[in-house]
Design a protein around this nucleic acid. Structure first.
Lengths: 250, 250
DNA sequence: GCTGGGAGAGGCTTA
DNA sequence: TAAGCCTTTCCCAGC
């Protein structure tokens, strides 16, 4: 396949925000936050309407190389009497992605909509909403006090009040809680204490917690509850377990 | 394009570990760790040799839907007098990905090697080595005392001794340091203090640090130095800057 | 096989 | 724009 033609088709596709798919023998070099070289080999290259470029090998979901928000330029050159097509993509962060094609097996351009229409459920946001609906099954008498308020820092924090009128910060995680989750909760609790000027409890709610994270949590005097959830059309929290720490209280 | 033929080509491609690329009108539904639905629309679907399936829209580097380690089966059915091709992919984690094709614009199969071409990264080891070679440009009189200790990727823990004989834990980050970096360093310092039984300094070395992380670091009494590095054939540290905190000392 | 942890993380939302 | 944070994170290396 004539590389001159390939160059034209790629540039035309980018200009018209089509999706361009190329299969060809290439060498890839990246310079930016890191630096990498992909030796000569046959690969799949995708140019999308949002100006992203991805290089895929015949394995893994993620591309081996990629660049987003790029401006791509093409030049054909002759090296050792052989034609080469050089694609240079740059972005604002001064990163560069260079693809050199030695030969192209196939190139196709498709007019696909640049839509974003995945409907995902089971996200933390959704679980958060489910939890907000009824905090009482976490602890009797617990009431949310910041349904809309935004003196919270993260997206999914709940500030509530327990039956004794004490403030409670709840951090919800949809996966095993790690060190970061604990320090995050600690920060929020401190922040709320500072703003409200009263002692505040902190509850970490997660399906599971790493051992060292649990230790840190306890040393901070925070509380942990495990929970189960079900994903589906509408995700829901199935049950709350008591943490060891909590058990010890009784 | 006849969906019966499409079905055959996809299954054949999977069997032979080719790469199969399909452009078609489809609906996608996923159930697993989360749950999602992608309404009918024209998309790119990639079947790779490692049995991964990805669905791409005309934007973003990452696929909207995907599945790895899957077993895929095909059935064609007729709904409302219209032919449909149903692909069902399952993996061991009991996750399911269902793609229903209403029409297929194009399908191509390519015999690409399932190689894992090493991406040579501007090596972090080199940054570690460069730093280890001469700690004195961080601070006069600083000497490493665990030259042989193993490094983890992306993180370099060095234990050194300053000119006053005090222990210094140094953590090197490749990227902007965040809360995690600070709490990590804090942990190491505490660990070393506990083991060695003597007061220990902690230095965070990173290209940049987030404002809040800086505050936390200072509240912990830790130190921060910024540095520049160059990636390329041989990565090297270009220079060490002094942190605001450090400047205040002088 | 499970788990801990980095990554050129990507990508999204809000200040 | 930067900061903060979630993710079906993906992926590898260690046990």
């Amino acid at each position: 396949m004539k590389l001159e033609k390939v160059s034209e088709e790629i540039l035309n596709s980018i200009k018209n925000q089509y999706m361009c798919i190329v299969i060809g023998e290439c060498f890839v070099s990246y310079q930016g936050r890191a630096s990498s070289k992909l030796p000569r080999g046959k690969r799949l290259i995708i140019f999308k309407a949002d100006s992203s470029v991805s290089i895929h090998e015949n394995r893994l979901v993620r591309p081996t190389n990629y660049m987003t928000n790029s401006k791509t330029s093409c030049t054909t050159q002759t090296v050792d009497k052989k034609e080469e097509l050089k694609l240079l993509s740059k972005n604002k962060a001064k990163e560069t992605l260079e693809i050199i094609f030695y030969s192209v097996d196939d190139i196709n351009t498709y007019d696909l909509p640049m839509s974003n229409d995945l409907r995902l459920s089971g996200s933390e946001k959704e679980l958060n909403d489910a939890l907000m609906d009824d905090l009482s099954f976490l602890e009797p008498g617990l009431k949310p006090i910041n349904q809309q308020q935004s003196f919270r820092k993260g997206v999914c924090d709940i500030i509530a009040e327990d039956r004794d009128g004490k403030l409670v910060v709840i951090e919800l995680k949809r996966r095993q809680a790690d060190y970061g989750a604990v320090t995050q909760l600690k920060r929020y609790v401190e922040q709320v204490e500072k703003i409200k000027g009263k002692q505040t409890r902190g509850i970490l709610l997660a399906p599971d917690i790493r051992k060292n994270a649990m230790e840190l949590l306890q040393s901070y005097g925070l509380e942990y509850f495990s929970y189960d959830f079900e994903v589906g059309e509408r995700s829901k929290i199935k049950g709350i377990g008591k943490s060891q720490q909590k058990l010890g209280d009784y």
